[in-house]
């Protein structure tokens, strides 16, 4: 039997993986990895501001992430700067300001490394409620948004012409994204969050024929990565966040190799 603090961490990690997989599919489909980085980096600033103002840290992170998402949405309507330039500036500025604010707070000690790379083993019961509650809420919201979000990811103008409220859907997705960032940062940290979203999704692409299948497979792949990473962390005393991301990456490489092998076999069978 696992120690309670280990169990809390494991359950939290699995909860995050279940929602990160399906959401990560949209990050991959909509090419929003860079946006996600900016969002995640702003979360560190949210933690720092939460400490300064004495509010719940998850709420602080949520507020800063949603604010950044709205700011990006606003900025993308201008055309002077390409989106990746804008996001590149924001992502790194957020990280820099976040680290600066944290370092200025000499009265409170913040585990900076824990926020940057995650600390699954420091998950408290309170964190667990936030993660499971927020995760369940995010999954439900994603299910509601699914059809219009997918339609606008495939062809935004077509969706709009046929009556999909594209702007509202995009706004909803960004807020959802911010919520998932806020709950996932405990597990893998702000620097690695995006990998927990996009690696399982990318790993499962070769085995999926429909968007829904890819989302379900990605959730499963995330669970496997969390279990393997967690195990490696307990077994060999590895930092858990990086161990989970490393496990996901190994899974990704294996899946790509298996898919390539399968294509080769299929081609040989046809020839």
């Amino acid at each position: 039997m696992l120690e309670p603090f280990l169990l809390h961490g494991l359950i939290a990690g699995l909860g995050v993986a279940l929602v990160a997989g399906p959401l990560g599919c949209f990050v991959v489909w909509r090419r929003m990895a860079y946006f996600g980085d900016a969002l995640a980096h702003s979360a560190l600033l949210g933690v720092a501001l939460g400490f300064l103002l004495g509010v719940n840290l998850t709420i602080g992170v949520l507020a800063s992430s949603v604010a950044l998402a709205l700011f990006v949405l606003l900025m993308q309507t201008q055309r002077r700067l390409a989106s990746d330039t804008l996001l590149g500036i924001l992502a790194h500025a957020m990280l820099a300001f976040g680290v600066i604010v944290v370092s200025l707070m000499d009265r409170v000690r913040i585990d900076l490394l824990g926020y940057l790379f995650g600390d699954l083993l420091a998950v408290t019961v309170g964190d667990l409620y936030w993660i499971l509650g927020g995760g369940a809420l995010a999954l439900a919201a994603l299910a509601l948004l699914w059809r219009p979000l997918l339609a606008s990811s495939v062809h935004e103008e077509m969706a709009r012409a046929e009556g999909v409220p594209v702007m509202r859907v995009r706004l909803g997705f960004m807020i959802l994204f911010a919520v998932v960032i806020a709950i996932a940062m405990k597990i893998v940290g702000v620097l690695l969050i995006i990998s927990l979203l996009i690696i399982p999704a990318a790993a499962m692409r070769p085995f999926a024929h429909t968007p829904e299948a890819m989302a379900a497979l990605a959730a499963g792949a995330g669970v496997i990565a969390v279990l393997a990473g967690f195990n490696g962390s307990v077994e060999w005393d590895l930092p858990t966040g990086p161990a989970i991301v490393a496990a996901a990456t190994i899974l990704f490489v294996l899946c790509q190799a298996a898919a390539a092998l399968w294509r080769g076999v299929a081609r040989a069978a046809r020839a």
Binding site: R147, L150, R205
Partner: peptide, 15 residues
């Protein structure tokens, strides 16, 4: 990167 069958494409904006 987006797996999409013709069947699924048909119901993109409506059931």
């Amino acid at each position: 990167v987006l797996p999409l069958t013709v069947r699924r494409l048909m119901t993109l904006t409506q059931r």
